[in-house]
Design a protein around this nucleic acid. Structure first.
Lengths: 325, 325
DNA sequence: AATAAAGCTGTAATCGATTACATCGAGTGG
DNA sequence: CCACTCGATGTAATCGATTACAGCTTTATT
């Protein structure tokens, strides 16, 4: 590979001038620029970005901490991030944590070793303290979840309203007894949603809502749903905390000879492709997944541009989509 | 952030010695090593990997070209890659091409600009010529697909055998007329699978197989399946080229009041989580997705270690899993 | 015409590491 | 006692870019 020196030699200018051409410095004479560009093309020169990064002290990449990539939900958020990052000529470094804090630390090292300029935490299980510590040294943003008080900017939907609307939707469709499966963690989203369904219960007096906590694998969740439905045959509405879990609910119902969407209605969170490929198709709370990622980048860039940019809270709009359940 | 110089000053040794300690050079005296390590800890020093990469002329990252991340299939392969890469202290840079060759070029630039040391193409739509060109300058490996003749090492399953076995499985279950939906591209996998189903047709004389090409979105694929089944009511077996398309087949059948797994059997390729969350659960050809990724890294590393490492072909074993369709 | 200003380009220091080679003291052998 | 080896550390060049500052032309100003 040729270097900037080779180009300089080839066209008879100094490396400084070549560098200026590369970086579009308007100070170079048009004629000079042409000659340099010619040389660059002739030698098929590509700037060594590692050298550039060392000199300029930025890496041009941002770290994205994600629980797992094996979930269409995160994959879609990631697409938004990639789009955002691409528009500013940066590169994303994707750190899949796989629910292991050791992995998290491994990736966070990238920040300290100058390989990443900032970090986005998606639905992260990082602790508030650790995040605060990271945020002191590096620009950081959260996506989907937040802490109170907020150590960094974040973007998400209004989970409370979303859950409220989902419950109302079921109530309007005639459901009298709704079970909300919230997942186990006392994450901000899970708490907000619980608050939302409770609010619906208070406001529409015709409906009762119970909250079922606990995170299970596919199989045990299915059994749990069956058990709960058998013990409480009056339940006629389910709110599931993800599309995958919505699909599990469908299966549980089918196995009990109940018809999803008729005997028992289901609304799941997320609106990923999963909700479109089940039979029947899942009604769901559609999150703006792509935009969540895109905006997260946008927030992060603000933090990176200004040393003391204010911390922001960004709420995107969701949409309750009724399909076949 | 402190630098190697700060550490040197702090402990009274030269930067050379500090560097030797960092890189575990056995030549430094044990006592010296201790003092240096103490200084490193005291200053919370982290080596600047950008500087290291510049000096050593390697980036410690590999590029992974993937069609899209929004597909559990690729996500799982990626998990294998991440595992492999992690074991060698490298980092993956994920380039999602989204079926746009411009994106591909953008990412391939990383190789020329010293930001990546090698590249893995997953199910890539790169042309044979372009790949050959890239491979001339950089270590490269293909995953899932291949070219003939092979410009680089690759890893995949034996798609011909897999399709053959799937067809035989349907035949054994009593199917007389099988339709194989192959997808549109004349990719190596698609061609191999076509060969496989044809071989099954020849060998089991009781069964006839037709190959249906063409790549459609979810909705038009569903209509296509319906149309074909209406026009050919004798079809009693479907082989779909992916789990997502398998789920579409389920829906098409249900809409026609046919029972998947009884009136018409379905076997789909891949064995992603999708095949487990449909109702009924899809029978499928399970690919070793994680291992495909893991081994791809392994092959790439061989190429990176030796300038002229031989090109290899690695075939992993698949498994036909009969579930409910 | 002398001088100041403006426009371009070049020189060389710098980013933070690695590493070939030099150096220096202690130990060894004759 | 001298020469030599060996072990441990230091000196300084280097990777390939950016950029402050210097310096040289050319143009403008009085």
């Amino acid at each position: 590979m040729s270097t900037i020196k080779d180009v300089a030699k080839y066209c008879g200018y100094s490396v400084a001038t070549v560098s200026r051409v590369i970086n579009d410095d308007p100070i170079v004479k048009a004629e000079t620029r042409e000659k340099v560009l010619l040389a660059i093309r002739a030698l098929k020169y590509r700037p060594n970005l590692v050298a550039k990064n060392l000199r300029t002290q930025k890496s041009n990449s941002i770290l994205v901490m994600i629980p797992t990539i094996a979930n269409p939900y995160y994959a879609e958020v990631l697409r938004g991030i990639e789009q955002g990052v691409k528009e500013t000529e940066m590169n994303p470094i994707i750190g899949t944590v796989e629910f292991d804090p050791k992995h998290m630390d491994h990736f966070l090292e990238l920040l300290d070793s100058n390989q990443a300029d900032g970090v986005i935490f998606i639905s992260s299980s990082i602790t508030s303290d650790r995040l605060t510590e990271v945020a002191k040294k590096h620009p950081a943003v959260m996506c989907n979840e937040y802490f109170d008080p907020m150590p960094v900017s974040y973007v998400s939907i209004n989970n409370e309203d979303a859950a409220y609307e989902a419950a109302c939707e079921l109530a309007n469709a005639g459901c009298k007894q709704i079970a909300y499966f919230s997942g186990v963690r006392d994450s901000s989203s899970s708490l907000d949603r619980s608050r939302g369904v409770k609010r619906a219960e208070e406001e529409c007096e015709s409906v009762a809502v119970s909250i079922i906590r606990g995170e299970d694998d596919l199989h045990s969740l299915k059994n749990k749903i069956r058990r709960i439905l058998e013990e409480n045959p009056e339940i006629d509405g389910l709110i599931m905390n993800s599309d995958v879990n919505g699909s599990v609910a469908i299966r549980a119902l089918v196995e009990m000879d109940l018809v999803p969407g008729k005997d028992v209605r289901i609304i799941s969170f997320d609106g990923t492709i999963i909700s479109e490929i089940t039979t029947p198709m899942l009604s769901c709370v559609k999150q703006p997944l792509f935009d969540l990622g895109y905006k997260a980048v946008w927030l992060l860039e603000k933090q990176m541009k200004e040393e003391n940019a204010p911390i922001e809270r960004l709420i995107l709009s969701h949409e309750v989509t009724i399909r076949e359940t």
